[in-house]
Amino acid sequence: MRSDTYAPTTYRILIGKPGLDGHDRGAKVVARALRDAGFEVIYSGLHQTPEALVQTAIQEDVDGIGLSILSGAHNTLMPRVVELLRDEGADDIFVFGGGIIPDDDIPQLKAAGVAEIFTPGTATSTIIDFVRGTCDKKYGRSDSGDP
């Protein structure tokens, strides 16, 4: 669906935990930071499949999906989410990721369509700026208006 005639008043983001790791402190910190920056954040809960996350993203009409993975399965799970979004014609929803992700893996994740990867030590303000900037660009807003 084209979004060019529409600019939302509030940006919506899904924070998802795909796969089998149960470490969601990081996901919750990012969700909370985005909330405090004025975003509506849907949190998926643990142990989601890429299919379930894409279904959720579509039902919730989110602008982007943040994937938190600390299990080492990022090379499989992150590109899979991007691929499923494409299959659903929903590739206007951007995907970003965070977790324990080796620097060497980042280029191939970006090549697979993941917009950005945030590794441990990233300031939450960096993540907020990225998410807001990407949403603004999506709706053709040049400066950073209210989300």
Binding site: R35, A37, G38, V41, E51, A52
Partner: peptide
Amino acid sequence: FSGGAILGDRVRMQDHAG
């Protein structure tokens, strides 16, 4: 304060994913 929200009800509704 921020106008933001955390919507977490789906966390308990995972049985119906898919």
